[in-house]
Nucleic acid binder design. Sequence first.
DNA 1: GATCATAGTCGTCTCCTTGACGATAAACAG
DNA 2: CTGTTTATCGTCAAGGAGACGACTATGATC
Lengths: 251, 251
Amino acid sequence: MPYDPSAFPPFAVTVDLVVLTVRKDALCALVVRRGEPPYQGMWALPGGFVRDDEDLEAAAARELTEETGLHPQVPDGQSAGAHLEQLATYGAPDRDPRMRVVSVAHLVLAPDLPSPIAGGDARGARWAPTETLLGGADGAGWDGERQAPLAFDHERILRDGVERARSKIEYSSLATAFCPSEFTVGELRRVYEAVWGVVLDPRNFHRKVTGTPGFLVPTGGTTTRQGGRPAQLFRAGGATLLNPPMLRPEV
Amino acid sequence: MPYDPSAFPPFAVTVDLVVLTVRKDALCALVVRRGEPPYQGMWALPGGFVRDDEDLEAAAARELTEETGLHPQVPDGQSAGAHLEQLATYGAPDRDPRMRVVSVAHLVLAPDLPSPIAGGDARGARWAPTETLLGGADGAGWDGERQAPLAFDHERILRDGVERARSKIEYSSLATAFCPSEFTVGELRRVYEAVWGVVLDPRNFHRKVTGTPGFLVPTGGTTTRQGGRPAQLFRAGGATLLNPPMLRPEV
DNA sequence: GATCATAGTCGTCTCCTTGACGATAAACAG
DNA sequence: CTGTTTATCGTCAAGGAGACGACTATGATC
């Protein structure tokens, strides 16, 4: 098919963000309240239009900073860096009732932020447990109160993002993106437990992560912030792919 | 950011296809020759504009049928069905010199087609080994002749698609998408060898795939089309996720 | 027809990983 | 001092994976 500049239908292109963190042993996502129609007053994933001369990833990074104050992927900066990657693109013709909108969703994994949502356009933004946002079909049985459904097709996007995160921490070292720059083995274990929704054996987990080359680098320090015996502090090692992978317990 | 229908910049949205198959023990991709500028005369991935009222996946399926005659994912039809999934979206502001184009790339895994490219808009379309199309940085050392580079950012897209395929056949049963509806363990092994670019032990491979529940279902028939002792015929089982996974040999 | 080459299939052996779980260590709360 | 909590080390048995020997059933060649 030839390119004919007058033949292509016009689209709006947006980025939406699935920003995940682990708070109080629960996997949580950032949602914002919509201030205008459609879906006015409902919760939605943060996002916005891609600008005229802006790359997709740059748009995602800009939205992330606007909403949370987080900066993606600062190589080693102490400032809270977050992992950002493209998730998938959603473009059903009727997903926005006003016009044809194609949304390039991105996945962000962030450490738990000290202040609620630092430096963000935080009017009506909050962290909500993914289990609450997704209702029943989110894996393990669930009996809490149902949250009003998300706007647009954002529930589907969030579900895909959570599944991506669950799968990705198996074979990559990305679970450390949920941790502060220095963390203990126990804190990392609680990340895996929260994201997968399972309970892991502390002894086997310790053996596994400390035995995986390049995953963890001891800093020499210790901490007792979790109570109990002081734990060694680690930072993320250089490895991005884990070999052998962490395997989600089956069933 | 509020939606302002007059504020969003106009984009063109296309789908591009990375169509992979295994031919003569080599992983090959479908490329078409461009008939007009820019990049006139160069090879490119097949693709085209998304229509006004068309979902992204529908557009990818339509392009696939137009180019190859393949239909995606016919549940069990004998007619050559192919696996189709979204790969990633590419939207750098300068990726097309004429206008702002966002391309939603899709990955297709197809069995080797009997006729060169059946029923397709095949003027100037061909299968080319990915190793040739990608030049050096495609993993194992390479010393063949260099193919002229692909148009646009299609080399990057192809590289991502090949990597996705390599990784996906590890933990899913998608390698069977490269095989005809009935195939032998040896044929499946040659698929893995071609996609990964390695040599696998036939005995361990046989034990592994026949021992993975839901991967293969014996049909009862045998074939000698590969020469040697007749081999049992199988078809793909119901499992989509392999447990345990096939692991790519390291290094 | 005997022999050879080619594939396919079954077994064995050893090493390593994993899951289950006992035991010890070092902090804090009472 | 004692109990509680969390961290860390060790042991053991079961299963998976790589290396590789052995045997089988075809077609090709002499």
